[in-house]
Amino acid sequence: MTNEEKYANAFCQAFDIEPEAAKNLTFQAIDAWDSVGHMGLVAQIEEAFGIMLEPDDIVDLNSYEKGKEILAKYNVEFA
């Protein structure tokens, strides 16, 4: 599984959505991505990449694309 697939899968697991729906998703764009769902997403991402996000990064993670930028700081590369 590529990092892109792992990343999209984290959204799918956290919000029970299809991979295509994950892309372009933003915070609170769907009911499942509320503040509680956000922590579930963080858990899925941390688990998928074996990292621990900084509190500031957890706050900044407000879209699918932004999350990829944040993960770059943790040496997670996307093709």
Binding site: G40, V42, A43, P55
Partner: peptide, 13 residues
């Protein structure tokens, strides 16, 4: 504050 932020993430999970 910061320690509790990190640990509470684990507790919520």
């Amino acid at each position: 504050f910061f320690l509790t932020q990190m640990i509470s993430n684990l507790m919520v999970r």
